[in-house]
Design a protein around this nucleic acid. Structure first.
Lengths: 229, 229
DNA sequence: CAGTGCACGTGATACAGGTCACAGAAGTGC
DNA sequence: GCACTTCTGTGACCTGTATCACGTGCACTG
C-alpha cells in the first residue's frame, strides 16, 4: 500500500497532468477497492466526488426501464470517472460498475475545489477532459444518426482500441480486453445477434481476427472507412 | 452600440455568472453580427475562441457526407456556443450557423485563459456549463437508444421548451420560436413525415396545439411520460 | 391575382434491423 | 470427468421507420 502515491501520480500523469499537481492531488485522494460486478454508483445518486482508476476496469452505462443497457464507455487504469458530479453539484447521470475488481482513488468534491482554486491549471486540465468526453459523446450520437449497423460496430471497436489497444506490426491493433458480443452490442446500440453477423463477416474478410479470445483489428483503415459519417 | 457592455453583462448573468466576472469578461469580448443563414464555423475548422449570443438564434449541427443533418441544439440569447475550442485547442467538432440574424460577442481563447487564470471561479462556471452539455448529450443518446420515435419527438419538444418556453396558465408551455417540422425531425433523428404524423396524433388528442404558428404544450406531463426511458 | 415556392399531411411500399428460436462451443465449478 | 451456465452462430420472421409519391394550402412576388 506504500506505493499508492506512486500509483496515483502515475495515473494522473497518464492523463497528462503536470507532476507537481498530480502529487498534490494524490494527497487528497482516498484509496479504495471494488469487487468485480459491484456498483460504484447509480444514475440519480447524489454525487460527492470522482474516482481515478488505478487498476481494473469499470463501465459507464445508462439503463432503460426495461433493463436495456446503453454502454457509454469502458474505462481502464489512468481514466477518470464520475467527473460530472465534480462540476455541477447535480446527481450522477449514469451508472458505473466494475467489470473487473478495481482499485480506485476517490477525490472529494470540496477537497478538489479547494485544491483547484489554488491551481487553476488543474481546472484547465479538467476542462480538457470533459471536453474530450463531450466530443466523444457527440461522435457517438452522430454515428447513431448517420451510420448503419456495421459502421456503428466499427466505431465501437475503434473506440475500444483507444483505451485497450496494443499496436502490433503493420498497423494491426490488439484489443487487450475480453469483450463479449453483448458488450459491443450495448455500446453500438444494436442487437447482439446482428453484431455477431457483422463481426463474422469481417472475420471472413480478414478485417479482424481473434487472437486467443481477444479481438485484433487487422485492417483498422477498413473499419475507419466504415465508421466515416 | 453603447449598450454592448450592458448586454454582455446581462447575457453572462443569465448564465449565472457573478456580476464582477461578467463585467471583466465583457471587456474582453469583441462584438460582431451575423446574418440569417450565415455559417459561423464548420466542423474541422480551427477553433480560436467562443461566442456568447446576445440576440438572435443559432443552430449547432453535425452533417453527414450525404448532407443529412443532426441538430444538436438551437440556442438563443444568453447561451454560449463554441466553448469546446476554449477547453482543448482542437478543431471545432460541429457546425454552427445562424437561424436568425444574430449579435454575438466573441471571446478569444488566449484572452479568456489569461482572465480565467486570475479568476478560477470562471473556470468552475465554465465546467458547469460544459457539464450541462455533456449531460444533455448523454440524455439524447439514451433517448436514441431506448425510445421509439414518438418518445424522441417528445424529448425534443421538451428540450426546446427549456430554451424557448414561456409558461402559460395550468402548466401549459408555449415554445416561442418558429419551428419547422424538419428542424424537429433533425433534432429527434427521424424522418420529417413521421414527425408530422406524431405531431398530428398529439394535436388530435389535445396534447399539443398550435397558437399562431407556435407550438404549445398543453399537457407537458404526457410528453414527459412518453420521453421516459 | 396567377405563378412559384416551400412547409405540411397522408397513403403505399420497402427494408434494416430487432426479435425469436434453437444448436453448437466454450468456459466454470464440483 | 460431467453437469451447467454463459457465450456464440445462424436461420426465419416481424415491425418500426425510412422512403417515395403525391395533394393541399399558404406566403411571397412579379
Amino acid at each position: 500500500m506504500a506505493d499508492l502515491a506512486g500509483f496515483l501520480e502515475n495515473s494522473f500523469t497518464l492523463q497528462g497532468l503536470p507532476c507537481e499537481l498530480a502529487d498534490g492531488l494524490s494527497k487528497l485522494a482516498r484509496p479504495m477497492k471494488v469487487n468485480a460486478g459491484a456498483i460504484l454508483f447509480e444514475a440519480g445518486d447524489p454525487g460527492n466526488g470522482c474516482y481515478a482508476i488505478l487498476e481494473g476496469s469499470l463501465k459507464v452505462s445508462i439503463l432503460s426501464v426495461e433493463g436495456d443497457e446503453q454502454l457509454l464507455a469502458v474505462l481502464g487504469p489512468g481514466d477518470l470517472v464520475g467527473e460530472l458530479a465534480l462540476l455541477d453539484g447535480r446527481p450522477r447521470s449514469a451508472t458505473v460498475s466494475a467489470l473487473k475488481a478495481a482499485r480506485l482513488a476517490f477525490i472529494d468534491k470540496q477537497a478538489f475545489e479547494r485544491f483547484a482554486d489554488e491551481n487553476p491549471q488543474l481546472y484547465r486540465h479538467m476542462l480538457s477532459i470533459v471536453g474530450k468526453r463531450l466530443r466523444h459523446s457527440n461522435d457517438v450520437l452522430a454515428a447513431r444518426s448517420f451510420l448503419p449497423l456495421p459502421g456503428r460496430v466499427a466505431q465501437t471497436l475503434l473506440q475500444l482500441s483507444e483505451t485497450f489497444g496494443k499496436p502490433l506490426d503493420n498497423g494491426r491493433i490488439l484489443i487487450h480486453y475480453k469483450l463479449s458480443q453483448s458488450e459491443i452490442a450495448n455500446m453500438a446500440g444494436a442487437a447482439r445477434e446482428n453484431v455477431s453477423r457483422v463481426l463474422n463477416d469481417w472475420k471472413r474478410l480478414g478485417t479482424i481476427t481473434r487472437i486467443s479470445g481477444y479481438y485484433c483489428l487487422e485492417r483498422p483503415e477498413i473499419l475507419q472507412k466504415a465508421a466515416t459519417l
